[in-house]
């Protein structure tokens, strides 16, 4: 059950995975998996969003499009794609 009304993945000590949309600006996360259609997954993979990649969330505000940075490459990601990316927070 979820009080805030936002659907959330179940979190426990063992499973700290969240969707990319839940990561905060400035946070470093690791991509766990990408859900979604074949086309979308391929496009995301082509641009460097692959499972195992570590990225920094540059901007995630006001429920709008997000900006992430993979090494030196900045990507703008629509919210529709961001909710399909499962990430795990990385401690620096």
């Amino acid at each position: 059950m979820c009080i805030s009304g936002k659907p959330r993945l179940k979190r426990s000590r063992w499973n700290r995975n969240v969707t990319l949309t839940e990561a905060k600006s400035g946070q470093t996360v690791k991509v766990e998996s990408i859900m979604g259609g074949q086309m979308m997954v391929k496009k995301a993979m082509d641009l460097g969003l692959r499972p195992g990649v570590v990225l920094v969330v540059v901007q995630n505000a006001f429920r709008g499009q997000m900006v992430v940075k993979i090494e030196d490459l900045k990507l703008g990601i629509g919210r529709g794609i961001a909710v399909k990316i499962v990430v795990e927070p990385v401690k620096r």
């Binding site: 900045k74 990601i77 629509g78």
Partner: peptide
């Protein structure tokens, strides 16, 4: 039609 944005932001 629902295709979401994913775009490279060049330096």
């Amino acid at each position: 039609v629902e295709s979401d944005l994913i775009i490279e932001l060049p330096p």
